[in-house]
Amino acid sequence: MIELLDLTLANAPTEAPRDAWGNALCDLGDRHTNLVVLDGDLANSTKADTFAKCHPDRFYEMGIAEQNLIGVAAGMASCGFVPWVSTFAAFLAKRALDQIRVVVAQPGLNVKLCGGYTGILTGKTGKTHQSVEDIAVFRAMPGVVTIAPADGNELRAAMTAMMADERPTYLRLTRDPSPVVFPSDYAFTIGESVLLRNGSDIGLISTGVQTIRTLEAADLLAAEGIQAAVLHVPTLKPLDIEGILAIAERTNAIITAEDHSIIGGLGSAVAEVLAEHRPTRMRRVGWQDTFGESGPNDALLKKYGLTAGHVCDAARAMLN
């Protein structure tokens, strides 16, 4: 467990993770000549187009054919390239799932699966494009590392760590600008969770960009005199079991929060750990077994129960 206790939301700049991803890919491409990017006709949405501009000779357009996209990446990986495959997570994690299983996960090929537009904030595209079950899918797939960074800085650090690692990896990306709280010199360690707030009244465990809203919740609770610990779990697999148990030990009450279905995602993962090692009261904030819809971001977060206020409500309900 890494400790970063002084991160603050006050005056945090914002950055769209997809922009951070596109830029970081260019930088990684400068350093690694075996890095190639394969796109499914969405480069201007995912920001793979940034890479297409800086390394046109290593950008492969694969068209609207996601199953083939995965297969081509596997073939290139078998010849020593490190393909970063990019499309929307909704299509990557479901439409090309059997391909990922058979030619990436089972042979253990070094393909980086980048799923854009995850969670509820997908630019008014609605339920066909919102990916609510991608963590569940990849967590259940043997051998696939699963990472959901909280902000642009953590994303950049995670990508550097991914390039130094040879395992197939799913990277969960989001679309819209959000606060950047991680330091720019942050070093990401795959499998390590990050303690962002110390506190013993309740433990808030979150992943991905939902961690930003969880930090906000912790600050709101602190103003009410409730001291919450915040554990950010960017690696859903392999899971930092010790980190989760340490928070449960300290607080005896756990809330999980994620922009993903509560079935199969972080909430399920934490529940499995606690049930097996240290039964602890818990509640899961996240999508309640439902598909979404299109709408403005604030309205969606509110309707689907993902705001800082919802995390606070769950905490208060548990403490009462």
Binding site: Q67, N68, G71, Q106
Partner: peptide, 19 residues
Amino acid sequence: MSTGSLGQGLSPGLGMALA
């Protein structure tokens, strides 16, 4: 290349050809 789920082998072949 690993195979067994039909329909998947030509794509990795294309990846190898591009490589």
